[in-house]
Design a binder for these strands. Structure first.
Lengths: 344, 344
DNA sequence: TCGCGTTCCGTTAGCGGTAACATAGCGCGA
DNA sequence: TCGCGCTATGTTACCGCTAACGGAACGCGA
């Protein structure tokens, strides 16, 4: 037996090293390490011991090239820092963990060009599937996905045309529903606050649905405010202050996400404003943060975890059974009225 | 020119396809696509056109195997959902973006065995480096990192022995500092709230440093409370309520993270408790969430972004220049007293 | 004893790129 | 005109592993 040489990593170990150390062919070592094919218990043990003793780590690059199989699933999302995608990731992982597939994350910062670049980079690793947020992509990105020959699942949104499969909610409908609930509770002078980001298509669709429902009821937004960057909670406070100063007669504040909604809520409570009597508030997403607020903000959960799970299931299924049809899965968010909408 | 066959992805394209379409050798195509070696402007253009027309995406698996170079950096962190690691990721990306290196994230959920598995999986892709949170790992994980022959940077913490390089702060010292500031402000009956997690070594070290400083001043914690799971903001409220009920004479609440600290602060304000007169509060991390709170929680920023940047810089430098020495970089968090510690 | 199916393991030929070297063609000074 | 040194391109030999097939050794029923 050679020296363990724990301090000298020099050349990376290969199957050949393990094969020599255990006196069998490389192929047999490969079989043992992948649990594939018949190997006697005795040799298996011998190989495993040699492998462990040497500290051998298989080279998946070579393996993937030879077998034409990669156990990676690309996940492309716009951001990691806003509470919503981490939960999607949790859903994805919870399903993938049982399948031998592994998620690899890429972040686009809501930039279409960056999305295209990340996608290109991912596809160049020949993953078993791709999960990507949204239905809006550059033409080139769309073409790449169509050509890739692997399952693609577009998540979060279903208001549009999917390249392949899709799992999400209708943000337009979500906006509409919230507007209807607000109107039904008797509010009439409604203002909106949201992000500046031109590429947050889902927020945009929610607002469209919201305004459409207002219009159908003979109403329109009385004021609106946008922000970008910075602490969302703080921005929520600031925008709310600005709106209430500018339009003191508003009776409802609709926020495009819970974080700024929470900021707005804290501001209103600070100011001693009667919530939901004088002013009602609502956000979107159903983040667990809200559970700790002094009053529960009205919101709609976006089914984030389930979206992740369903998307991962589609990839996994398509990977096991070829020729499955693309599918579009619509989920339905539930409205959580909380304590910031008047109840009758 | 053959049909574009936009609907028929069948067999994946290879260099050969592009080579045939453009009438040059595969090697030349490879050179063009990697911008390496001399190629005449004319052929370069021809190759690029053919490549684009076909929608060719290089196979990095084959490329990596042949060149023995992989532009990936493994990043192994315990969680994505607690505000702290996303910012580390931002720091890492901001540096790596300029280097051609790409981060690949793995999440361990604070489980050592899972960390070992994730590390094994990552190393099997032969990355150019690994950034991993913490200094505590299984023996096998430690051995793998020592053997890997690539730069390894352990981040967040420097209270311990690094395998290779490290970038972080001393959590023990951070705890000590906070305790000293609290004591200096005249608080004496101090309680602690934190996570249950036995594997959050950094939180544990902060508490150790904190208690040590108390001891040196003839003090000890008068009460403590632990939680796990659930909405941190809510847990902060609940634990704070429990402590104040159980030990009504406490005059300071030290939280192991800002999120539960924020929950505690909201609770105290709800209850009309005089903060910081009757009760002072402090957290840890310096999350931007705090900016939106009605009162600014005392905290210490953990240098998260800078940790990510420095770690990425080390990997990038080691990748360019072989034989650089391992380094341990200590960063120094600053105490932000906010509005929840008495000032004289 | 023969034949045949099992079990177990080895051999061969790539996977799709790239490093390293080979070579063709050209300009240009002696 | 020759030959040298470029530049632009092609050829060859892998990288480390696995699919597919081959074959030895053995057991067992006829």
């Amino acid at each position: 037996m050679t020296q363990p040489t724990s301090t000298e990593p020099r050349r990376a170990l290969t199957l050949r090293d393990v094969s020599e150390a255990s006196g069998v062919s490389e192929m047999t070592v490969s079989r043992v390490l992948r649990n594939r094919g018949d190997v006697s218990a005795a040799t298996r043990e011998r190989v495993l011991q040699a492998s462990r003793a040497l500290g051998y780590v298989p080279n998946k690059i070579a393996g993937a090239l030879a077998s034409q199989r990669v156990n990676l699933v690309g996940v492309i999302i716009p951001s990691m820092s806003n509470m919503v995608f981490p939960e999607v990731m949790t859903g994805i992982s919870s399903v993938l963990d049982h399948t031998g597939l592994q998620p690899v994350v890429g972040v686009t910062n809501y930039l279409p060009d960056r999305e295209e670049a990340v996608l290109y980079e991912m596809l160049s690793w020949r993953p078993s599937g791709v999960i990507i947020a949204g239905l809006e992509h550059t033409a080139a990105a769309r073409a790449m996905m169509a050509q890739a020959g692997i399952p693609i699942v577009e998540i979060m949104d279903i208001d549009g045309q999917a390249v392949d499969s899709a799992v999400g909610i209708s943000h337009r409908r979500a906006g509409r529903q919230m507007a209807e609930a607000i109107i039904a509770s008797g509010y009439r002078r409604i203002a909106f606050m949201g992000t500046q980001m031109p590429n947050d298509f889902r927020a945009k669709k929610r607002l469209e649905g919201f305004e459409e429902a207002l219009r159908r009821n003979g109403l329109a937004l009385v004021d609106r405010e946008f922000y970008d960057g910075g602490s969302a909670l703080l921005k929520g406070r600031e925008m709310t202050a600005a709106i209430l100063r500018r339009s003191p007669d508003v009776d409802f504040l609709y926020y495009s996400n819970d974080m700024i909604g929470a900021g707005g809520l804290l501001y209103c409570l600070d100011q001693g404003i009667d919530v939901p009597g004088k002013v009602g508030l609502a956000g979107f997403n159903g983040v667990e943060l809200l559970d700790g607020l002094p009053r529960r903000l009205a919101t709609m959960d976006a089914c984030r975890r389930e979206i992740g799970q369903r998307a991962a299931q589609i990839i996994a299924a398509r990977n096991q059974t070829a020729d499955l049809e693309p599918e579009v899965v619509e989920l339905f968010p539930t409205l959580q009225p909380g304590d910031t909408i008047r109840q009758f």
